[in-house]
Amino acid sequence: MSWVANVMVSVDLDDGANVAALSMWLRAEAPQRGQPEGLGGRGVGYLHRITGPDTQWGGWKYPECEVWAGALNHADLDALRQRIFETRWRQPNAVQLLVMDQEESFFRLWMIRGNELRQFAPLVPNEEDDDFYQSY
């Protein structure tokens, strides 16, 4: 059985190497969801760069950021957020982490501001909240 989290990381062009290192950590060292520290499986997938001259985006120009994406399996998302926060980014205010966990219907956005990683997407609408959808 799997538990998939769709993840995208957008960073300044100067931080591509940091995302590549994050991807290697996800592949080989990242803890799996629900496993005690030091026990259980390691590695939950990896991120792939989806911007650059070898990729196709709409428009006539190349993006002015680097975006990496992946579908992670059994990822400990708290550990991922902590790793994002602790990375020594060259442009920390440009870092955006977007996560859509299994059974969720929209991405949540996390950004580094000051001395914390903050969620900017709302906690609601909740996917279970029928009243929200009926109001539109």
Results as ranks from 00 to 15, higher is better:
Val99Ile: 15
Pro92Asp: 07
Gln82His: 10
Leu97Asn: 04
Glu86Lys: 13
Asn73Trp: 06
Pro92Thr: 06
Trp89Asn: 02
Cys65Glu: 11
Gln91Ser: 12
Asn93Glu: 14
Ala71Val: 03
His74Ser: 09
Gln82Glu: 14
Phe85Trp: 15
Trp68Met: 01
Trp68Ser: 00
Asn73Leu: 04
Glu64Lys: 04
Gly70Met: 01
Met100Thr: 00
Trp89Pro: 01
Ala69Arg: 09
Gln96Phe: 01
Leu98Ala: 13
Leu72Pro: 02
Leu72Lys: 00
Trp89Ser: 05
Arg88Cys: 05
Trp68Val: 04
Val95His: 05
Ala69Ile: 05
Trp68Tyr: 15
Arg83His: 14
Leu97Met: 05
Leu72Trp: 00
Asn73Ile: 12
Gln82Pro: 00
Leu98His: 10
Val99Ser: 03
Glu66Arg: 04
Cys65Trp: 11
Leu97Ser: 07
Glu64Arg: 09
Leu77Thr: 12
Met100Gly: 01
Gln96Asn: 07
Phe85Gln: 07
Cys65Ser: 10
Arg81Cys: 07
Cys65Gly: 00
Leu77Cys: 07
Asn73Tyr: 08
Leu72Thr: 01
Val99Arg: 06
Glu66Pro: 00
Thr87Gln: 13
Thr87Asp: 09
Ala71Met: 11
Glu66Val: 13
Val67Ile: 15
Asp76Asn: 15
Arg90Cys: 08
Arg90Val: 14
Ala69Glu: 14
Trp89His: 03
Gly70Asp: 12
Val95Ala: 02
Glu64Trp: 00
Gln82Asp: 14
Gln96Pro: 00
Asn73Pro: 01
Gln91Trp: 06
Glu64His: 03
Ala71Cys: 10
Ala69Trp: 10
Pro92Trp: 02
Ile84Phe: 08
Arg81Gln: 14
Asn93Lys: 13
Val67His: 00
Asn73Gly: 01
Asn73Ser: 11
Asn73Lys: 08
Gly70Cys: 04
Thr87Cys: 10
Arg83Ser: 05
Ala75Met: 09
Glu86Asn: 12
Ala75Lys: 08
Gln96Gly: 03
Arg83Cys: 06
Val99Tyr: 08
Ala79Asp: 10
Ala94Leu: 04
Asp76Cys: 11
Asp101Asn: 10
Leu72Glu: 13
Arg81Met: 13
Gln96Trp: 02
Pro92Gly: 05
Leu72Arg: 02
Leu77Asp: 07
Asp78Tyr: 07
Met100Ser: 06
Asp78Met: 08
Gln82Thr: 13
Leu98Pro: 02
Glu66Asn: 08
Arg81Glu: 13
Arg83Met: 01
Met100Leu: 13
Gln82Asn: 11
Ile84Met: 12
Gly70Pro: 10
Gly70Arg: 00
Arg81Lys: 15
Asp76Thr: 08
Ile84Cys: 06
Gln96Cys: 11
Ala71Asn: 13
Pro92Leu: 04
Asp76Gln: 03
Leu98Met: 13
Arg81Phe: 08
Ile84Gln: 04
Leu80His: 03
Glu86Cys: 08
Asp76Met: 00
Cys65His: 14
Leu97Phe: 01
Met100Ala: 10
Ala75Trp: 05
Ala71Ser: 11
Gly70Trp: 10
Asp101Ser: 13
Trp89Val: 12
Val99Met: 15
Asn73Phe: 03
Ala75Leu: 02
Asn93Arg: 12
Trp89Thr: 10
